[in-house]
Design a protein around this nucleic acid. Structure first.
Lengths: 340, 340
DNA sequence: GCCAATTACGCAAACGCTTGCGTGGTTAAC
DNA sequence: GTTAACCACGCAAGCGTTTGCGTAATTGGC
């Protein structure tokens, strides 16, 4: 039999042989088991230290059927929102002695499936996933369910019945945003919204309307325009808004990128930002405050905290704090942040 | 003996039992081994498919002493530069059938050590690491070396003799940047540099001087000022530069954030950007082009490509393409990108 | 029709570790 | 002095897979 690997790393066996005791005694000594004499314990631990012994995790993972590893699947690692989220996930995983296995789907369903497959094969204890834009088929998650690997969905959540999830309620944040503008005296407030099929767009629109309703103002459909989030689309949307009879003095934009494009357009029209027109946006990027004309306020979605929350949820599931069928859905509140 | 885990996942044994053949035959059949009859192969593969059999990677990792996993340790996952790098690393790891284990040090040496320790215990095949700002002690990397786990350092490289590394040469990029300004007719070019002890600052200064030398211009020390990268520090630096007798018409700033702060200051002084004064910067953020006054050009450091390169280097080491003592250092060229 | 080569499969060890159970030996309780 | 409790340790199975080697049965060459 060929020795596959000789990594030179000392094993429990070696220690046992050198000390003329059994491996089980060594193992227990290393775990500070009560049934091992103080003398033997000390001898074992000392020799282990001398040899630079380190437990072979792969062996333990295999033997225990648990890896203390969580898989995290996101569409795009380099997007600011997600990278903050990863940061939050890694931090809380780390402090609970879990490790993080990473994969990005690039919004490609096939790759998403392969990564899930790979994570399943790696025997991760659980997953945190944000699905791709184009994912329509959820059979890969069904496989995880059958393998009894719990999944917490996060931010981008599939339309499935029984799932754990963490997401951010943009509606309440939008209410706050519109409230803010109303209190500043604005009465004609436009909104550049995203594609209508997105949940995120629906929540924004709902928040907009709820805020108006709260203030007993009537809703003018012309004031919400859907755009495709490109610079050109945003310019077009701005043009529409500015051509209305009622003079729009404030605009809620879908995200910071749209806000920046909208600002550009407004400047070209010789409008003075924060005087002729005020923008409020959603915080997708930490650098928006560095721009020449940052939005007056933005709705923060706390990606880092969402990552933390998702991880905590997963860990509590892994700890068996809940029934397997007790599906949890945490909806975090977004919050308006003023850019003074 | 208590059965630790029953995950329900079918094993090779099960298949063997059901088919009344030995496990070795099943294993070989699953690997398409030539010594297995076509008939048996087919029967095995079919049953495996029916049962939804999936190889237990943890068992294989353990048995083979190899995990096909690379550890990646970075200071801060949410920084744009690093998150792009991760993206590049994950992409190339993925296409080579490796998986990525993630950790962030938050520039904390103790945490860095713990993560390295954890990765070592996980028996990663290799590591890619960017060290923390404050790391002075490198014994944790020495341990990796002893465990024969190869490490490729990346971007933030320790001052050690025999290491593999990938980094970006900012000097040449700076030469290009200053060249660009000189060709545009600027003759008095300022530089807001970072703290002097940083390698990155030294490279920038060197590039600045080399470009001047190339054009047979003399170097005026007053034109390079060191700042602390805060908004206030940048304003102070700008003030210094603008108060010089010779009228500064262009400034090379340490990074995009500094550039944005500098722009703000210039605007307050009623200077017209790209007319009275032109900025050139280093690309740390993908959104700088969204700002009202992006720098006229910026030195791109290609974090994604650096990530790819580091991964490829690590994989080639793992493949045994080089001697263990053949230390590789790849220095990538940065490149000036014009923002038309 | 004999030997060699080939085909098709099984045996069993090994990877490193954990853990239920068994077993001598000592101590304490009555 | 007998029984019970406890202490300190060893035995051995088992986790799922791979793989060197052994071995029947079949085939082919001459």
């Amino acid at each position: 039999m060929r020795k596959v690997v000789s990594s030179g790393q000392p094993t429990i066996k070696e220690i046992a042989k050198r000390l003329n005791i059994s491996v089980s005694t060594v193992s227990r000594a290393l775990h500070d088991h009560h049934s091992i004499g103080l003398r033997t314990k000390a001898r074992v631990q000392q020799l282990a230290a001398e040899l630079g012994y380190e437990r072979n995790q792969t062996a333990i993972f295999f033997q225990q059927g648990k890896t203390f590893t969580i898989g995290i699947l996101l569409p795009e690692l380099s997007e600011a929102f997600f990278s903050s989220a990863i940061s939050g996930i890694e931090d809380t995983a780390y402090s609970n002695n879990y490790t993080v296995l990473l994969g990005q789907s690039h919004d490609d369903e096939a790759r998403e499936k392969q990564i899930i497959q790979s994570m399943k094969q790696h025997r991760v204890d659980g997953c945190i996933v944000s699905i791709g834009k184009n994912t329509r088929n959820y059979e890969h998650f069904e496989m995880l369910r059958q393998a009894k690997i719990p999944v917490v969905f996060f931010d981008r959540i599939p339309d499935l019945p029984n799932i754990h999830s963490v997401s951010c309620n943009l509606e309440s944040g939008t209410v706050q945003a519109v409230d803010f503008l109303l209190k500043k005296g604005h009465r004609v407030i436009g909104m550049i919204n995203g594609p209508e099929q997105l949940v995120a767009s629906k929540e924004r629109a709902a928040g907009y309307m709820r805020a108006l309703h709260k203030h007993r103002l009537k809703y003018d459909p012309e004031l919400i325009v859907s755009a495709d989030l490109t610079a050109a689309g945003t310019a077009e949307a701005m043009k529409q808004l500015l051509s209305l009879k009622r003079k729009v003095t404030a605009v809620v934009t879908f995200n910071d990128y749209v806000a920046m494009d909208a600002v550009q357009y407004a400047l070209k029209q010789k409008l003075e930002i924060n005087k002729d027109i005020t923008f409020v946006s959603y915080a997708n990027t930490p650098v928006s405050s560095y721009t020449a004309y940052p939005p007056a306020a933005s709705v923060e979605q706390f990606p880092y905290e969402q990552g933390q929350a998702a991880t905590n949820m997963l860990l509590s599931i892994l700890n068996g704090d809940h029934d397997f069928n007790d599906y949890q859905q945490l909806i975090m509140e977004s919050q308006l942040v003023l850019h003074t």
